[in-house]
Design a protein around this nucleic acid. Structure first.
Lengths: 224, 224
DNA sequence: ATAGTTTTGTTAAATTTTTCACAAATAGTT
DNA sequence: AACTATTTGTGAAAAATTTAACAAAACTAT
């Protein structure tokens, strides 16, 4: 890839990055339907967004479709991969092999070539040494060693909330470069570590809020 | 609550709604630290945002703090509850009692008064009838009946991806009002159903992208 | 051929979201 | 009582994101 191209990609809007990943996911599903091309409005429908949004995103990454035929699915998948995947691949570890950690491993297993979950960690002796879909669960005490030996760059935190802060610290100390925190306790990391946090309760409460709004709207209309 | 207040809340930015839920989460944790007040910059630090953002959000909901003393934690929690919680409470069902479904139940258990997971569904006979943290797992065949009897308004989809579409249809047919889809397959719902989708791979790929960018930046600097 | 339709690519406008900048207030200090 | 350091609340500006609008191209049907 040329240096200029890379520089362009660095400035892609955050939202576009997220959608590119989603486009690829949708495109991979479409691959099976022995269709060669796809229209912006088809992608948009799947993702619940507008066709313009899709076209703008693809414009930003410099990919062009064919007039009246749309985008070549295979090609577009490759172009997206070129942008969001790392050439050498990136290794990921799950810290916390409870329900959520195992869910992530199962869910992710073999889905992406360039992004692999290569290790799990836990403190529970019953779990240490076990395999989940080919992923070994290591003792959390050996985190630093394993992370460095296995060249792990991203850590996903799925421990009980009480252990969140300590886990984040361990990961940072081990030289991790990105953290995805699924516990409801926000963590602090040095600014050279990329951090993404997600709390399922927040999302659920958001859904509940809009359901509540809809209910109240209906109640008011009923009164009149 | 007055009608005008409600109308104001309806127009709150989506992002503000999400943050309110997060503020409450942070405030609930702070309650234990026998501190009565909290400053905007303290909340901001926890949430990795700016103090202005916090103040603006609180301004939008019409809550005022005290100059030089900040916001009353207890009060603020109540004000936020007034906005995002539903008076009568909202019942939630988990469809798919695999690792992810069980993780959600464990994780959520007893955390919110006004939002309760009251049922789980699965098709696996081994799981049907089981209890997870007090939540009964019902046969997915009885979904409509249970949802209507238990007055369930929100469904969380945590089934294997192959069952996603059918599950969403079942929920919609049962009269659900909000769906939170955790599978990587987007669903279609009528427009009177509020839909939120979340794919863990998308988030992980986003983290990977920014880690990759950081790596490349470092490589370039090293060359010079 | 020609007309009609559909789709892309993109500039410009609109909207949403965040940040700046600063007045007003207040607690603590001298 | 005066001074200093902080903090809130908010109008205005800036930045980010989405949408509108439409020219240009290409396929279809006549």
């Amino acid at each position: 890839m040329s240096k200029n191209a890379r520089d362009t990609f660095k400035q892609l809007p955050h939202k576009t990055i997220e959608r590119l990943s989603q486009y690829r996911r949708a495109l991979l599903i479409c691959l099976n339907n022995n269709k060669e091309h796809i229209f912006s409005h088809e992608i948009a429908k799947i993702q619940h967004i507008t066709p313009v949004q899709v076209r703008r995103d693809l414009m930003l990454i410099g990919y062009s479709g064919t007039l009246r035929r749309g985008y070549n699915i295979r090609e577009l998948i490759d172009v997206i991969a070129e942008i969001i995947d790392s050439d050498q691949g990136i290794n990921v570890a799950i810290v916390g092999m409870g329900n959520l950690g195992r869910a992530m491993i199962n869910y992710f297993s073999g889905k992406r070539h360039k992004l692999s979950i290569v290790a799990g960690f836990d403190t529970n002796p019953d779990k240490i040494g076990q395999l989940v879909k080919g992923v070994t669960c290591y003792d959390a005490l050996n985190m630093k060693e394993v992370i460095q030996n296995e060249n792990i760059e991203i850590g996903i935190i799925t421990v009980p909330v009480i252990q969140t802060t300590a886990t984040a610290k361990q990961l940072v100390d081990a030289g991790i470069k990105g953290i995805l925190n699924y516990t409801p306790k926000p963590v602090e990391v040095p600014e050279n570590v990329y951090l993404e946090e997600y709390d399922m309760i927040t999302t659920l409460e958001k859904v509940a809020f809009y359901v509540k709004m809809e209910n109240e709207l209906k109640d008011e209309l009923a009164k009149k």
